[in-house]
Design a binder for these strands. Structure first.
Lengths: 348, 348
DNA sequence: TCAAATAGAGAAAGCGCTTACGTATGCCTA
DNA sequence: TAGGCATACGTAAGCGCTTTCTCTATTTGA
């Protein structure tokens, strides 16, 4: 570090104020044991010197670093196209977390794990922060366990529980049930098919469960498995649309497992002259910002992404506050009606 | 901190390996002075114990924290709607920075400054990191100066220079000149108007300059100021479109100061039955991901956002490496042709 | 063969802060 | 007026690491 940057230390403040560093420290932390007069005096000297306590020293001396780490998978997109929106999902969560953290006066360290680097990175981050918010699948489960033993951790959007970590997830099941019910009860479509994501995705499974529940509630026949399934990418949505088209007969409505696949499907269907929603109604899941810009606007289920971020910080703070028993929290999702389901909603 | 989380220290490693902490430290930093045999031994003990050095202690002992801070304005959106895409711009920069940082083995701390909190936050962040990347307008200029005296700083997308800080910016002027030239020379539109952003925005000013240069080059009349101006939000784009419509006669083409305003304008024009680009050609600036999903796709100027992020980290590292003279770097922008300018480009 | 150079390793002094503990002072009670 | 107890403040011991200095083997050169 070039010496041009000189920061005043607590000693300089103490000396200049004619007190001991203990008093300065007490003022710094608003602790009692300092008279009002001295406190004012010290405060003004700190101002004057532009003193800012060293975070490293504070951390070392047994206090908090005042930093929380956010770890999420770096879904690097070979085809930039498909990855772009997925990323947005994390960005929103990050933003929510960041805001919540700022309100608490703590900073947020972000780290995207490349598949390979997961373990190593997580550890290196862990040494810099007080607690960790980990997105599902950014760190291998084994490493999660060892991480959780050395630092408070909350896991976001994961399905499997690991002992000692807090859980936070959006209500996928309820959301899927809500869209499905909308198509069945409000629009009274004769057929409502479900298109899932990867079969091992907890999100996809939960959404399918919700779909089934809604069907059961309406006394409709409940399928054993999704009608078709993709991998949550726009490309797979396009592929599925083509398969459907080749079948000859179209379902009246389709509940798609996420927005991106819905984008791809709509694009293909429309380019093939099929009218959405007049011939096929389509719904998505996530409410990516792009959803409202599509023609027609995509009816979807909004995930409270920022809220997920904010809540994860809250959970972590509770944990850091000394709570020993980890919690498990589910956040509600919200049906967002636009035109692709058949509603004539202008959104503005 | 609850005592349930116990981390091994360098002392435990040393004891278990039967050496002094100095040797462990040397191994940690790959410094010479340790025989190959001892080095291996110590390494294996570290593995076994799951030892990770404390970042705080390292920082205190005179080393780097291994963290770089990213400060950007929190353009909080009263109407969530309008803010969404602006945010994306920062997200992309953050992502670029994050990736570059990871490659260098350093972490990134992000902090969005609320208008009010600027100074305070910046200082609190400054105490946690080795260097700072600051987006223009997230920290008041006065505070920037004092920041820059205590920590290496690179300023992103600012126009005014502050002594001692590195500068990084995208070529707004060149980009605006390029679109303008495209409309003038390629499409040969008789009128090409410019719609600016906030008059105090350096970006907006630079883009207007580029527009003017292109006009001058084509021997067209150069206006003194933008034809109209908004505030870079989609809502202001809609407002402007309505004003234009009320005028009766439409310009043949419009260079809009950023994508969001272009979105808003297109939406209103189209909903009023105006054909884009057949009646009015529109271009934007930024190339937000949504731009390609619009109907028609928006011709715009691509800002190398990720690259900006990555480059900012690189600059900072050079600075941290001991370089004393700050640099000033401009990154190129790129014209992205879609349909809104009149080109028949399919993008897929 | 012996002095001199050298590699490997340890001892110890901080880095800037927090905090338990110790020590004055003032004021109250008996 | 002596004893007691707040209250305000200072002292000093770390926190876990880096780094300089020092010491001991071992090697090298003449």
């Amino acid at each position: 570090m070039p010496s041009e940057f000189e920061k005043p230390t607590i000693y300089e403040v103490a000396e200049r104020a004619g007190v001991s560093i203990a008093s300065v420290s007490r003022v710094l932390q608003n602790k009692p044991g300092v008279s009002e007069a001295t406190r004012k005096m010290i405060t003004s000297v700190m101002q004057e010197l532009g003193y800012v306590p060293s975070n490293a020293a504070r951390g070392l001396a047994g206090c908090r670093a005042g930093i929380i780490g956010l770890i999420f998978p770096d879904l690097d997109d070979p085809s930039m196209e498909s990855g772009h929106e997925t990323l947005l999902y994390f960005d929103e969560i990050i933003r929510g977390a960041q805001r919540a953290a700022r309100q608490e006066g703590i900073a947020v360290l972000i780290a995207a794990t490349h598949s390979a680097s997961g373990r190593e990175l997580a550890l290196s981050i862990a040494s810099k922060v007080d607690g960790l918010v980990v997105m599902a699948r950014s760190v291998p489960e084994v490493d999660m366990r060892s991480l959780a033993t050395r630092i408070p951790t909350v896991l976001l959007a994961a399905d499997r529980h690991i002992s000692g970590v807090d859980y936070l997830i959006a209500d996928n099941e309820g959301g899927a049930a809500a869209v499905t019910r909308h198509l069945v009860e409000y629009h009274k479509y004769p057929t409502v098919k479900f298109i899932g994501g990867p079969s091992n995705s907890p999100d996809s499974r939960a959404r399918f469960r919700g779909y089934c529940k809604a069907l059961a509630l309406a006394n409709l026949e409940v399928p054993k498995s999704p009608w078709m399934a993709g991998d949550f990418t726009e490309a797979s949505g396009r592929r599925i649309a083509k398969v459907i088209l080749s079948k000859g007969s179209l379902p009246r409505s389709v509940v798609v497992g996420n927005d991106q696949m819905a984008f791809g499907m709509m694009k293909v269907l429309i380019s093939e002259g099929i009218k959405v929603p007049q011939e096929v109604a389509i719904t998505g899941f996530d409410d990516l910002p792009v959803a409202r810009y599509l023609q027609p606007g995509l009816t979807t289920v909004r995930q409270p992404m920022r809220q997920l971020g904010a809540e994860s910080i809250r959970l972590l703070l509770v944990r850091l506050g000394g709570a020993t028993s980890p919690q498990s929290v589910t956040l509600p999702t919200e049906l967002t009606l636009r035109q692709s389901c058949g509603c004539v909603n202008d959104d503005y």
